[in-house]
Amino acid sequence: MQSILKKKFIIDRSILFWKVKELAEKNHQPNRGAVEFDHGSKLSWSPDSKAIVIYRATDCEIEVFKVNKKPEGGIAIQHALKFPKHHTLDLVGFGIAANGKFIMSCDSEGDLVLWSLKGAILHQLHTKLSPAYCAKISPDGKLVAISGFTPDVKVLQVCLNKSGDFEKVVRAFELKGHSSGVLGIDFSSDTSRAVTVSKDKTWRFYDVRVEYEKGQEPYLLKTGEWPFADLPTQVALSPDARSIAISHGTKIYNYDTVTGANHGTPDVHNGDISALIFDPESRFIISTGDRYIQVLHNVAGCYAIINELQPKRKTAATTAQKERIDQLINQAKCVLQKVGEKVEG
């Protein structure tokens, strides 16, 4: 279900479910659910797409809804559970681990909580990062990263026992090198790469595929300049780790991790961008900020494919490999030509 639905919050207390396959149709309509007497500021799908979890903005409570398919078609949601109230502030991080073993919430004072799916607190940690700016669960569900006013990002390992149940939280590693607070962090889909953006007006791109259990630290692969030093800022790393999207206010900056070049866009919203992600295939950047969801071509990702694969074409061992490389390069060039970029060859 996650592959065919988009979701958005607006302050009319509704949750809207969109079938992506129908968006090209003239009269496509969303399915609507309601958050009673409140609205949600954060949302996360369960790994099996049978539930959504929201953070109620006014009540500061976590609520679980079951997601059901209607017999006549469409989606319906039903209240299932409210967690005991814990936070009293806005959240800077929220989500369900891909392995389904825990839910993470972290508020702006750096109070990090791991919850069971039934609402029991598994682990609580005050990270001493007040103010905290961002908290993310890695796509493999093994790591939780938290950034704040310090120049280093804390990355924790969530350990499970042999039965697959929560056991403990330990230090994994830190992402170092910035000279000021880190505004955001994100991971690639296989958790092999990470990106950070800082108040020092730089972004840093890391190899985090290391044996951190043995004390190995991540490697810095590339760094680049970014023109701002404050919030509101969102950062996303493409699933294939070839491109980065960083928003500030109403603009999105789109960086190529192969060369570090910026292929940014002009204003894309009428209000500050509040969420920023890539689609699973790294083809599009998806943003929210006003009452609309914007879907943009990942221009930097196309340039990264060309810059990465052109040298490999010369050393391709077989005709089949060369043909596959040519196909990917030509597809990237077609997208760039579609959006008005000048492409050589």
Rank of each mutant, 00 (worst) to 15 (best):
H269E: 00
I246W: 13
Q234C: 15
V235A: 05
V268T: 04
T257K: 07
R242L: 15
S238K: 00
G271T: 03
I244D: 09
E281L: 12
V268G: 02
F278I: 03
G271I: 02
V268M: 08
F278P: 10
N262I: 06
G260M: 10
G249P: 07
A245R: 02
D272Q: 12
D267M: 10
H269S: 03
V268Q: 10
I252M: 02
I273W: 04
P266H: 09
Y253C: 07
I277S: 05
G260P: 00
N270T: 06
N270Q: 14
A275Y: 13
V258L: 13
F278V: 02
T250Y: 00
S243Q: 12
A245M: 07
I277T: 14
S247A: 01
G249K: 06
A261N: 10
A241P: 11
I244H: 08
A275N: 15
Q234S: 14
Y253V: 02
A275Q: 09
T259E: 13
D240I: 03
G260H: 08
Q234V: 09
S247L: 02
H263I: 10
H263R: 12
G249V: 03
T233N: 10
I244F: 07
L237Y: 11
H269L: 00
T265F: 15
S282D: 01
K251T: 14
G271F: 09
G249M: 09
P266A: 05
S247R: 01
D279M: 05
R242D: 12
Q234N: 14
T233P: 04
G260D: 09
H263F: 15
S282L: 13
I273T: 01
T265L: 15
R242T: 06
P280A: 01
H269Q: 00
H269F: 00
Y253A: 04
R283A: 13
I244P: 09
G264C: 02
I246E: 03
A245H: 01
L276K: 00
G260N: 02
A241V: 11
Y255P: 10
D256F: 06
P239W: 10
Q234D: 05
D256N: 03
I244N: 11
I244T: 06
A245T: 01
D256E: 09
I273C: 01
I273V: 02
H248Y: 14
R283C: 11
G260Q: 03
P266F: 08
E281S: 14
F278E: 11
L276Y: 03
I277R: 05
S282N: 02
Y253H: 15
S238D: 07
T259H: 04
N270W: 07
D272R: 03
A275F: 07
I244W: 12
D279N: 11
D240W: 08
P266D: 08
D256M: 11
T250F: 06
V235I: 15
I277C: 09
P266Q: 08
S243M: 12
A261V: 05
P280D: 02
S243V: 13
V235S: 05
G264D: 01
N262T: 13
S243G: 06
I246A: 08
L276W: 03
S274I: 02
A245W: 04
D279E: 05
H248I: 07
E281T: 04
D256T: 12
L237M: 06
T250R: 08
D230Q: 14
N262D: 15
T265Q: 12
A245I: 02
T265I: 10
D230S: 15
S247G: 00
D279G: 08
G264K: 03
A261M: 09
S247D: 01
V268K: 00
